[in-house]
Design a protein around this nucleic acid. Structure first.
Lengths: 343, 343
DNA sequence: TTGAAAGCGCTAACAT
DNA sequence: ATGTTAGCGCTTTCAA
């Protein structure tokens, strides 16, 4: 692997000169002749800069850490793709970490990434992140003097930059859509307390009911954890409730779980309940009855997030910024007027 | 950020001593007293090693590059997760690149990763990778003196380490399963020529037919490109062929596309054709008729791949190794005896 | 216009 | 048992 030293020797100039030329430093004009000679040699020797050396010298790595809870979740993989593609355009590489839904892993990852000298950290927090003691969470962030942004969460108790999707509004418009179709008994499958964005979605659901003068019934609330499995487990309970005509789920996956359960028990849940999920999972479309879903507009989210992060990397006067992305309801066949129960 | 220098100063020892202690170098025993003092200070100052410095000095980065064609593809995101989790245990970080299915991007990524001094490169090749001129492909690999492994492909014309799933056998056992159930006219949706693993799957399908003395009919071959969209587009042609009773698809996604089309046209494709896909996509389970699928055992694949790669990183006598992972047929409800056509 | 030299933080061979 | 030194490849200030 050729170094600047090699080029310098062959061109009979100093390493400093080579550095200037290869970095197009404008301030000092190097004679056209030498410049061309150096560039020629660089090409000939297939010179590739050594990033470790640049990092050490400039104290910047052109690496951004991205920590996500679970890359197999389609929502997170979409975020990851957009982030990677976008960062690449700006010359950054993505150091990827799957925290596997563990706060301990997130903590280890952040520390490791700081040590690795990344220029910035994007954390898409796990559910555990908001369930551990506030003190732990605060400490993690406080000790961090790296450009940092939280993606896909409201950090109620943290003073950081963040970008989130407007979950309150998302749940609100979804609930409203169901109400408009004539539904009065709308089940809500919530994420567990402390789960990312769970409280906001619940709030939006409740607010919509309130605004339409509908009662908020505790028995219409079901507790899941965003997993297919939890939807599967809730299915028998929900399908026993014959008064319910519509289901709003905090994500698509739990509806998938419920559908799976119903399939196994030969219950036609898809035509019985109007349904709306969150995430606009690509698979929502290929179901027997394609699912209406609240799209979180991941592209818009990461656009905002990267703008904030990269701007923060430039000027080091830590000003935390926030953005909330407007939701979009993707309407498909799963929302219809209430189906009268056969009992 | 505290450095070894800071610790050395406070402990009144040399940087070298600090380095020895903090790296637990066994050869030279440092006095217990100093050792403890140094460790105490490291903790107190919250010392974190500077990876750029280590990289530069040791010529190793503890970074592994992972290049995948499209992280939103569930098969690739599963691979990515397993790789990341596993590498982390070995102290490596994953530099992630989504090549977005472009050979140019793969090329750029490999060059950039070499420049970044990664210790090894895992390439899950795009389809384009095997469609560009062999010369380009060869050159890319030849110029590479980094530990490198190709994952999820047969590099017919390349001398590299690789790990792949046994596609021939996978297609064979799937076809056999259909034949065993009584199917004689089995459509095969192939990936385009030159696409990763496409030829092998076709070969396995044909071999199974041959071994069961069934004719290989060109009109039973349909050309897709692994995308949902291509399955969608093939659906109308396939469903017109009333003699066909079963469909083997080179992946699950194309079946999803076909199912989607059928849904929109109110054709009950799921009960009309026995179906088998590849990838064992998690969503196969939640379909109206859960899909039988050939599981590529991604965990086993990455286990082999990382073993080969990491071993290669240690001793630098480039010996290319290969592994082929045995397939597993996950049987679900989509395989049944031929359904007589209504016409 | 160009070069010399110091320094980024750490490692490792060699001295002591 | 511990320190000195050179060096990894590059950037940047200062001098010439």
């Amino acid at each position: 692997m050729a170094t600047m030293k090699d080029i310098a020797r062959e061109a009979s100039v100093s390493v400093a000169t080579v550095s200037m030329v290869l970095n197009n430093k404008p301030n000092s004009r190097i004679s056209k002749h030498k410049r061309e000679e150096i560039e020629r040699l660089a090409r000939k020797l297939n010179y590739q800069p050594n990033f470790a050396a640049i990092s050490l010298s400039k104290q910047q790595s052109l690496n951004i850490a991205l920590i996500v809870p679970d890359i197999t979740n389609p929502f997170f993989s979409l975020l990851t793709k957009e982030i990677d593609l976008s960062l690449e355009k700006d010359g950054y590489s993505t150091i990827f970490v799957d925290s596997n839904n563990s706060f301990q892993n997130e903590k280890k990852a952040i520390e490791s990434m700081v040590s690795r000298g990344v220029d910035g950290i994007i954390l898409v927090p796990s559910n555990e992140f908001f369930r551990v003691d506030q003190a732990q969470r605060k400490q993690l962030i406080a000790n961090l003097d790296k450009p940092f942004i939280l993606l896909n969460a409201y950090p109620n108790d943290l003073d950081v930059s963040y970008v989130n999707f407007d979950n309150v509004n998302g749940a609100y418009i979804a609930t409203q859509e169901l109400i408009d179709k004539g539904h009065r008994e709308i089940a809500f499958i919530q994420g567990q307390t402390g789960f990312v964005n769970a409280a906001e979605r619940l709030a939006g659901y409740q607010q919509a009911l309130r605004d339409h003068h509908l009662a908020i019934k505790p028995q219409n609330l079901f507790m899941g954890d965003y997993s297919v499995q939890s939807g599967y487990e809730l299915a028998s309970t929900i399908t026993q409730r014959k008064d319910i005509t519509a289901i709003l789920s905090s994500n698509d996956l739990m509806l998938f779980g419920m559908i799976k359960w119903a399939k196994m028990h030969h219950i036609d849940v898809l035509h019985q309940y109007a349904m709306i999920g969150f995430d606009n999972d690509p698979y929502s479309e290929i179901l027997e009855v394609p699912l209406t879903s609240v799209d979180q507009r991941p592209k818009a989210m990461i656009e905002e997030a990267l703008a904030i992060l990269l701007e923060r990397i430039g000027n080091d006067h830590p000003v935390n910024k926030h953005a909330l992305i407007k939701p979009e309801l993707i309407k498909r066949a799963s929302v219809f007027a209430p189906v009268p129960t056969s009992e």
